[in-house]
């Protein structure tokens, strides 16, 4: 299925909850594929959208390749979902943008199990809450680490457990 067919199918099902389709116009085929994404206007609809993407037979996005997170530097954070259908061999990238004060999206762990650790990583590094996650802990840093280090406004602590941190 081509991208335009996928988008059209999603638009008939979800309408205004989806945002614009951002097509990359790079000459490099790989960059064009990885840089084109569908915005999600209503991040709270991600769970329903994910169920639809996985269970609709013509879409059958059975694999979540990657969840990445992004600090846009203007007071908003983004969560990016890379999906692939191993059945139809097509791919789709979704991007949801959240306010940095209360960054919260529904978890998709119950839909794609691979999301479990990747959502924990996004929480650890960027401080994005995934509502309904079964095990919402940090994944790499210590539980009492102050802050989320990949945020643009992150300040390294001077001391951590009595140990000086800056060089």
């Amino acid at each position: 299925m081509s991208h335009s067919e996928i988008i059209e199918k999603l638009r008939t099902a979800f309408g205004d909850k989806l945002g614009a389709w951002r097509e990359s116009n790079s000459e490099n085929a790989y960059q064009r594929r990885m840089g084109s994404y569908l915005e999600i206007a209503e991040p709270s609809a991600i769970r329903d959208l994910a169920f639809f993407l996985r269970d609709e037979p013509t879409l059958a996005f059975d694999s979540l390749l990657l969840i990445s997170s992004l600090d846009n530097g203007d007071g908003s954070l983004s969560v990016i979902y890379h999906l692939e259908s191993t059945k139809h061999a097509h791919q789709l990238i979704l991007k949801a943008t959240l306010p940095a004060e209360v960054p919260s999206v529904p978890s998709v762990t119950s839909i794609w199990l691979h999301a479990n650790w990747q959502e924990r990583e996004a929480w650890d590094m960027m401080g994005i809450r995934f509502e309904g996650h079964p095990d919402h802990r940090r994944i790499l840093l210590d539980d009492d680490y102050p802050g989320h280090p990949l945020r643009k406004d992150f300040k390294e602590p001077d001391f951590y457990h009595g140990m000086k941190v800056p060089y």
């Binding site: 790499l140 840093l141 280090p149 992150f154 140990m163 941190v165 800056p166 060089y167």
Partner: peptide, 20 residues
Amino acid sequence: NCGGPYWEYGYHVLKGVDRV
């Protein structure tokens, strides 16, 4: 010894084990 390549941006690295 001193934090190595993480000396500046290593938010998670102790800059030398001689600090503990």
